[in-house]
C-alpha cells in the first residue's frame, strides 16, 4: 500500500490558507468600495480605486519603484551571496559550520537595528564616507537617505544572510565530483562555473531569487527608514494611506495590487523557467 504523504501537508496548508485568506479577503473586499475617508466606505460595489491606481502615474510609479528596488536587491543579493555560499559549501574545515552559524545568528538581528547600523556607517561622519573622502575617492559624503540606492542597500542587508543560506543549500546538492570530472577533462575554472555549476544551480537560484524578491516586495522598514519620506514603495504607501490618511479602501486597493503583482511575477518566472527547461537551457 502506498503511503499518502500528501495528507501530512493538509493541516499546515489549511492553517496557512486560513491565515492568508482571512486577512486578505477583508482587504480585497474593502478595495471594491468607494473610500469616504476616516475609515468609512461607500455602499456600492465599484472599481474606482483600481481605476484611479491604473490611471494615475503617481501610483504606477510607486509600483514600478517597488518592483525595481526588489529586483535590484534580489539580483545584487544573489551576485554577492553566490560566491560566499559556494565557498562555504565547498569548505572542508569546521569553519564552514562556524560561518553558517554566524550567518544564522546575523539573520536574527532585527531589521531596524540592521538599518540603523547602515545609517551609522554611511553617515557623513561615518567610517565609510570619511575613509573614501580621505583617500580621495569621494569629494562629498555619499548618502543613503532619500534615494533608491539607499533603499536597495537596506533591502540587501535584510536579505543577504537569508540568500547565502538558501544558495548554500542549493550548491550542496551539486556533487563535487562533477566539477572534478569537468576539470579532469580540461575545463578551466570559469568554464566549470559556466557549464556545470551554474546550469545545475539555476533552478534553485531562480527559486531563491523569487523568495528574496517576494520578501523585498513586502518589506516596509528599509524603505521607510532609508527612503527619507520620498521613496514610496507600495508597502510604504499602504502604511501612509491606511495609518496616516485613514483611507482604508484605497489602502486595501494598494495592498491587493501588491499581492496580485507578486503572484503574477512569480507565475511568470516559473513559466519562463519551464520554457528554459524545455529548451534544455537548465537542468532540473
Amino acid at each position: 500500500m502506498t503511503a499518502r504523504w500528501g495528507l501530512v501537508l493538509l493541516p499546515p496548508f489549511i492553517f496557512s490558507f486560513f491565515l492568508v485568506a482571512a486577512s486578505q479577503s477583508v482587504f480585497l473586499e474593502l478595495s471594491f468600495f468607494e473610500d469616504l475617508g476616516l475609515g468609512r466606505k461607500g455602499e456600492d460595489f465599484v472599481l474606482d480605486n483600481y481605476t484611479r491606481f491604473l490611471t494615475d502615474s503617481f501610483y504606477l510609479h510607486a509600483l514600478w519603484t517597488t518592483i525595481k528596488t526588489s529586483a535590484l536587491a534580489a539580483l545584487f543579493t544573489l551576485v554577492l551571496g553566490f560566491p560566499v555560499a559556494y565557498l562555504i559549501a565547498r569548505m572542508r574545515s569546521q569553519w564552514a559550520m562556524v560561518l553558517i552559524a554566524g550567518i544564522v545568528v546575523a539573520t536574527f538581528v532585527t531589521i531596524v537595528i540592521k538599518v540603523y547600523g547602515l545609517i551609522v556607517i554611511f553617515s557623513a561622519n561615518g567610517i565609510l564616507n570619511r575613509s573614501l573622502m580621505e583617500i580621495g575617492i569621494l569629494s562629498e559624503p555619499f548618502t543613503i537617505f532619500g534615494n533608491v540606492s539607499g533603499v536597495v542597500i537596506g533591502l540587501m542587508h535584510f536579505t543577504l544572510g537569508f540568500g547565502v543560506l538558501l544558495l548554500y543549500s542549493v550548491i550542496q546538492t551539486i556533487p563535487r565530483s562533477l566539477e572534478d570530472a569537468a576539470a579532469i577533462h580540461g575545463a578551466n575554472r570559469w568554464r566549470v562555473y559556466r557549464r556545470v555549476i551554474f546550469p545545475l544551480a539555476l533552478p534553485g537560484v531562480t527559486v531563491g531569487a523569487l523568495m528574496i524578491f517576494n520578501m523585498c516586495m513586502g518589506a516596509f522598514t528599509s524603505a521607510a527608514l532609508l527612503g527619507g519620506g520620498r521613496v514610496f514603495t507600495l508597502p510604504v504607501l499602504v502604511q501612509r494611506v491606511v495609518m496616516m490618511e485613514l483611507k482604508f479602501s484605497m489602502g486595501a486597493t494598494l495592498a491587493a495590487i501588491l499581492l496580485v503583482s507578486v503572484i503574477a511575477i512569480n507565475l511568470l518566472s516559473i513559466f519562463m523557467l519551464r520554457r528554459m527547461k524545455a529548451a534544455h537551457l537548465v537542468v532540473v
Partner: peptide, 20 residues
Amino acid sequence: KVLKFWSRGGETLSQFESGD
C-alpha cells in the same frame, strides 16, 4: 534640497550628531 523628511523628531538629533 531636503536630505530627509523625518518621521520622528529624534532623527534630527542623531543627524546633527552624525554630520548629515
